[in-house]
Design a protein around this nucleic acid. Structure first.
Lengths: 190, 190, 190, 190
DNA sequence: TATGAATGAGGCTTCATTCAT
DNA sequence: AATGAATGAAGCCTCATTCAT
């Protein structure tokens, strides 16, 4: 009996991400994905129960990959400000190296599919980030604000700016990155 | 050209927005929109050339509506900081009063449709905002950063937080709004 | 606006009956039916919700047609034995003139579809037959048996014999018809 | 040729019969059969050439089983009336003990598959029955009718009544069985 | 203007079967 | 012998759009 080919799984994921960024949810189809992945449409159903299942697993997979890279080199011994900057740099690096994955995540997160899919809450992936912010606040380095508020002030600007960059409406060069990091820090620092 | 029944046009727009937020681009269809709008599918083609055309016009229409309300009460005589806060409050108010429109805009903006549609650049709508930021920088009130950078630090956090609020992951009450405005200001102020 | 074409409905029904008798439930398909009926596959969905709905409505339609013709000329003034013979003759005539409809009914009745479809009980169609049998029993012309028992002894043999006839395993000529009617009568008569 | 594991063959047969009675020819599939039989789809192809082949062999197998049991205890020394009653009782007993097999046979016999499959004529299985009827007629116990006519009057009613019983439209209790046997006898007796 | 009827194209998924172990 | 992987063909149904009134 043949073995399941891990490459096929990945090929399907990559094809989906690419197509989703090229033509979007409205025009994607299982057969287009299959064609791009160089498999038969029915092969997708060997690996996934259906379209929803595939998209859900793809989302979780990519989210996982991103969180791992964003949190690289972060533990509770790293000084808060260093960790803060490292997280931002990690995020930028991940996004620049994985443009398609990032844009897929953004598209998916802003579509109702994500709720209708009833995926398990993936916030545990970012747990170290919550801890980092809590630690910073305890050390009086950060403002006495809701944790989520602080986190969003860190992450939202960079996401938005990278999208502008990809759209060509803005150039996220090193100077702008430095400025942005400074601004985020000014926003959250006590 | 103007059509007889402006209500039908609006009904189609509203039905589209609702359905898009309920089921997303992947599952929407002209028939479903027609059913929700209480018109015949063919009626949509009286008002619009085709699906793309309809979505494009809807996007422009909503974007216009939002920009108008966000910029309400802003002109170049208003002190920068007052204007800054007013813009943020306007934005929050618009979003809370037009949840569907806002979520539609977010979904649309993050889908590749927006590029494939070749809509004319709508940034002129926010021109007064650019002026406001430029004025603030000239008056040494704001940092010496790229205009876009400053703008994003104003808008991205509030958008992200409102979405968290709608998702139930965070409560955007008055205290948090105040904190957020303070943080945005700290981010951009000189 | 166009009008619904009653011919199309009937064409779909006839195509389905024919194909079902030619290739059976296992090989029939909506597109084959459409082709045979000279309509587009999607047109079928203008007239019926789905395949199940169509088959169910077809079954009811044919069953209705058959019961009407079988009961032609039967009322409670007709002497029981005359009515009995007339019913049998009617049934034979209907089946010979509507071979396809009859075979369709037999095929459908013996498939689990008929239960899974949850059609409303069509026994009311044969209500006059129940009355006839009851009358015959009251007049001591028929045996003191369960009504259903008497009815089955009337109908089952003729159905079985006609199928044999169509299969070529038996010739249902006038002599055999007469013999059969005599046997059925001997079976039920007091 | 004989296969190693006779159990698998039987498991496939049983799974097919069950599924055919649950969902019918239109919805059955080799995968579903395999799943129900707890084998792999490909295993079916070890035992049978293809789907048609499997169904044909199943039909013959079940038909054989039924005819054997119906004819149990019948030979040309048994008095005709005794044999007649024994056959009917055998038939009822078989059907009650093998509801699924019986219903499968009915479904199969009424579908065009049985002709399209070009199975060899299985009437030899019931040869003793033909002989019984011929003997009865020679002894002037039965009517001077076509053999098939007499046979059908014996078998058709019981089949029809059992189906009614399974459908819950009629209760085939001992009294009704006796009545039915009497009626069948009255039908065929000289 | 407004509409239900009509449709070819294409959606998702399952099919019967074969492959490779 | 036995099986899970793999697939082209085909299943049902819905799509965006046009037709005809």
């Amino acid at each position: 009996m043949r073995h399941k080919d891990e490459n096929k799984n990945e090929a399907i994921f990559q094809a989906t991400i690419q197509l989703l960024n090229e033509i979007g949810f409205s025009d994607i189809s299982m057969s287009k994905i299959a064609k791009r992945a160089n498999v038969s449409p029915s092969t997708i159903y060997v690996y996934f129960k259906n379209k929803e299942d595939m998209l859900g697993k793809l989302y979780t997979n990519v989210k996982q990959k991103m969180s791992t890279q964003i949190l690289a080199g972060i533990d509770d011994t790293i000084p808060v400000k260093i960790a803060f900057e490292r997280v931002l740099r990690n995020q930028i690096e991940f996004i620049f190296n994985h443009k398609d994955e990032f844009l897929f995540l953004e598209q998916f997160s802003n579509s109702p599919l994500i709720q209708n899919l009833c995926l398990e809450d993936p916030s545990w992936m970012f747990h170290p980030l919550f801890e980092l912010v809590d630690r910073g606040r305890e050390q009086k380095l950060l403002k006495e604000c809701d944790t989520m508020l602080l986190l969003v002030l860190i992450h939202a600007p960079v996401s938005a700016l990278v999208k502008q960059h990809f759209n060509g409406e803005f150039e996220l060069n090193e100077k702008n990155i430095k400025d942005m990091i400074q601004m985020s820090w000014d926003a959250i620092k006590a």
